[in-house]
């Protein structure tokens, strides 16, 4: 009998991991609803404040309606790209739950990827549904009907989710060495308020800050996909720069993950009981 190909095995493993992740999420649907509420309050608050500031007219090109579209985009993209794995890893390493995960024939990251897909798919779909319903009653939040642009946006959201995932996962794995790995995640979270465009479109930030931001991963994980959806990204140069930034940072964080994972596992073996 021919040996099963690795791809087929991995596919079956993913089917099983996804199924179990879905079932767990279904069990904890009330908790997930609460996380969802928590996730959208930040864009709602930012939107409310900009709405009040824009009462007197457009703010650097953003009208009240423009802010509404932007923050709907932020809520959607943020939900689809969230990263919480660092906290899980921190707990697993501290409480010894990492041990049985290391004995499995499949690396723990696959379980995390399945969890991420099972959680983000349905919850992002809920936000999308709210956006669609809202745009029936509130013309201001309608985005132009351009399927090509939407497809490009979906690709950018996928890449953004991958960058944030490996970024969070690799940072979280530093818990092999330090008990304060989650503090590093929080630090990035704080910086991303500004550099990712979470509290304001990047064009409202001081130009020098934006200039620095483009050399980091922050704008590519939120601002870029959102601005594709809202129509702020127009020229092919902007698209090219955005996707190039995404690919470069995805490669960097993927490599960093591999580095930290191989080293950290050895380090853990040396001290773990």
């Amino acid at each position: 009998m021919a040996a099963r190909s690795r791809v087929a095995t991995l596919r079956d493993q993913y089917a099983e991991l996804l199924r179990s992740a879905f079932l767990v999420d279904l069990q904890y649907r009330a908790s997930i609803a609460i996380w969802l509420v928590w996730g959208i309050t930040e864009p709602i608050i930012s939107f409310a404040i900009w709405w009040s500031i824009a009462a007197g007219g457009a703010v650097d090109g953003y009208t009240r309606d423009g802010f509404a579209r932007y923050f709907f985009g932020v809520a959607l993209v943020n939900q689809a790209t969230l990263s919480w794995d660092a906290w899980n890893i921190d707990r697993w390493i501290r409480e010894g739950e990492m041990n049985h995960r290391l004995t499995r024939p499949i690396a723990p990251i696959h379980e995390a990827i399945a969890d991420n897909i099972a959680y983000k798919g349905p919850t992002a779909a809920i936000i999308l549904a709210v956006w669609v319903v809202a745009s029936i009653f509130w013309p201001a939040v309608r985005i132009p009907f351009e399927p090509g642009r939407w497809a490009l946006g979906i690709v950018a959201i996928g890449l953004a989710a991958a960058i944030r995932f490996f970024n969070g996962y690799a940072t979280g794995l530093l818990a092999f060495w330090t008990t304060r790995a989650t503090a590093l995640v929080e630090l990035q979270f704080g910086i991303s308020l500004f550099l990712s465009g979470r509290i304001a479109p990047l064009s409202l930030l001081p130009p020098r800050v934006v200039h620095v931001a483009q050399y980091l991963w922050f704008p590519y994980v939120l601002s870029f996909p959102v601005e594709i959806l809202t129509g702020a990204v127009t020229t092919w140069q902007q698209y090219a720069r955005g996707y190039a930034g995404q690919l470069v940072w995805l490669a960097i964080w993927l490599l960093l993950y591999l580095l930290v994972w191989t080293r950290g596992r050895r380090h853990y073996g040396a001290v773990g009981g």
């Binding site: 069990q27 904890y28 009330a30 908790s31 609460i34 996380w35 509420v37 928590w38």
Partner: peptide
């Protein structure tokens, strides 16, 4: 009883 993250609200 199953809702663990009430404080998140």
């Amino acid at each position: 009883v199953a809702v663990e993250n009430m404080a998140t609200l």
